[in-house]
């Protein structure tokens, strides 16, 4: 393993801004794995740290197949993590809305360009991503439908779901989209959490990447059978929304099977605890996303369901 600084600049009163990459093996740029781009993505950094530790062992045991190189970048934005701010410290811009970046542009455009320059030539790109809403996900691989997506490859992670979604205007400035445009097969992996570390799903994320690497004959690794992934289009998700605003009392967890008519949650009046809404499943489904906040705004998607059963 070698450690290198792939992008940096000098701070005025802070330590230098640095993005570090950990490289394994030599040869063809096979896989790049990136953790957090935002200041609240602790789980994403954590998953990368576990992966780095596993890859070190694999390399030491000679199980890294010759001719392949792998790079892991645990964090593209330590400045924001260290001040506990989700977006960029000074101007609140989102690095994951700046790709492919611009090396003569503004700070976050330069960071995006600096990172992208180092990672755009990899055959496969894997990003541990987070959702804009607080909540938990059933582990899944997401791919944007750019016309370049390869669903069969996404199944190699052995995660329960492969989710395909249509890019919206702002998606065109994300890392995943630009990786695909530059002909890297790109995947976003959602483990269950973001701001809290969930060790079990982190381990699942690591296993998913190792399973992918072994199926693509980049590492020799055994030990994770995985799921036979189900492919779902994101438009097929059912959003179960709050019709009222108030406290949210959730009765089911992500990954649960629910039946049509089953009570999923209550929205209650925060002053009187009167039930304002009994939230029910509209059909038999698997809970793919669970909103996590004590309060719900009106129209918030409290759950996203995948129709059917495990």
């Amino acid at each position: 393993m070698t450690e290198e600084v792939i992008y940096s600049f000098k701070g005025l009163y802070r330590d230098d801004f640095r993005v570090k990459g950990y490289k394994f093996g030599e040869g063809e740029k096979s896989v790049c794995i990136l953790g957090s781009l935002r200041g609240n993505e602790y789980q994403q950094i954590y998953v990368c740290s576990l992966l780095i530790s596993e890859l070190k062992k694999i390399e030491a045991n000679g199980q890294l197949v010759k001719g392949h190189s792998i790079m892991v970048i645990p964090c593209g934005n330590p400045y924001s993590v260290n001040i506990k701010k989700r977006f960029w410290s000074i101007d609140n811009t989102d690095i994951n809305r700046m790709f492919p970046g611009y090396d003569l542009g503004e700070t976050t455009q330069r960071i995006a360009a600096g990172i992208f320059e180092n990672i755009k030539d990899y055959k496969y790109g894997i990003q541990f991503a987070s959702f804009y809403m607080p909540g938990y996900f059933v582990p899944q691989v997401r791919m944007m439908k750019t016309g370049n997506e390869n669903v069969e490859l996404a199944r190699q992670f052995g995660l329960p779901f492969v989710v395909l979604h249509k890019p919206r205007p702002f998606d065109t400035a994300t890392l995943n989209y630009n990786w695909q445009i530059w002909e890297t097969d790109a995947f976003s992996i959602y483990t269950s959490s973001t701001e809290k570390i969930d060790k079990i799903s982190a381990k699942q994320g690591v296993n998913a990447v190792l399973s992918f690497l072994s199926k693509e004959k980049i590492v020799e690794y055994h030990g994770f059978a995985g799921y036979k992934s189900r492919v779902v289009e994101s438009e097929k998700f059912l959003s179960i929304r709050a019709n009222e605003a108030g406290f949210l009392e959730s009765l089911v967890k992500v990954g649960d099977n629910v039946m049509k008519g089953q009570v999923l949650a209550y929205i209650t009046d925060p002053y009187t605890s009167e039930i304002l809404q009994t939230v029910k499943a509209s059909q038999d489904a698997i809970v793919a996303f669970e909103y996590d906040s004590p309060i719900a705004y009106k129209n918030t998607a409290l759950f996203k369901l995948i129709p059917g059963r495990w």
Partner: peptide, 8 residues
């Protein structure tokens, strides 16, 4: 007044 590398 505060700028960092790249600020407009």
């Amino acid at each position: 007044p505060v700028v960092e590398d790249g600020s407009l």
